[in-house]
Computed example of a mutant assay.
Amino acid sequence: MTPLLFIEQVLNGLQFGVMLFLMAAGLTLVFGVMGLINLAHGSLYMVGAFAAAAVAGWSGSFLLALVAALAASAAAGAIVELTVIRRLYDRDHLDQVLATFALILIFSEGTRWLFGSFPLFLDIPDWLSGPVTLPGGIEYPLYRLAIIAVGLSIATGLFWLIARTRLGIRIRAGESDREMIAALGVDISRLYTIVFALGAALAGLAGAMVGAIQSVQVGMGEPVLILAFVVIVIGGIGSIKGALVGALLVGLTDTLGGLLLPEAFKLFMETSDATATGSALASMLIYILMAVVLVWRPRGLFGGAT
Score class of each variant (00 low, 15 high):
L122F: 04
D123S: 14
P125I: 02
D126G: 15
S129Y: 01
S129R: 08
P131S: 14
V132F: 02
L134I: 07
L134P: 04
P135S: 02
G137H: 01
I138H: 01
E139Y: 09
Y140D: 10
P141E: 02
P141A: 03
P141D: 08
R144Y: 08
R144C: 05
A146T: 14
A149N: 09
V150M: 03
G151P: 13
G151W: 07
L152Q: 09
L152R: 05
L152G: 10
A155N: 03
A155L: 12
W160V: 14
L161D: 09
A163L: 10
T165C: 12
G168N: 05
A173V: 03
G174P: 09
G174F: 11
G174Q: 07
G174S: 07
E175W: 02
E175I: 15
D177T: 04
D177E: 14
R178D: 14
R178H: 13
R178T: 12
I181C: 04
G185Q: 07
G185L: 06
V186P: 02
I188E: 10
S189M: 03
T193C: 12
T193G: 01
F196S: 06
F196K: 00
A197M: 02
A197R: 02
L198T: 03
A200T: 08
A201P: 04
L202V: 07
A203D: 09
L205K: 06
A206Y: 06
A206M: 08
A206G: 13
M209T: 13
M209C: 02
G211Q: 03
G211S: 04
I213S: 12
Q214G: 01
V216P: 03
V218F: 07
M220D: 11
G221K: 06
F229G: 08
V230S: 04
V231H: 10
I232Y: 06
V233K: 02
G235P: 10
G235E: 11
G238M: 12
S239I: 12
S239K: 12
I240W: 01
I240T: 14
K241Q: 14
A243L: 09
A243V: 11
A243D: 13
A243N: 12
L244G: 11
L244I: 14
V245W: 05
V245Y: 06
G246K: 12
G246N: 12
A247G: 13
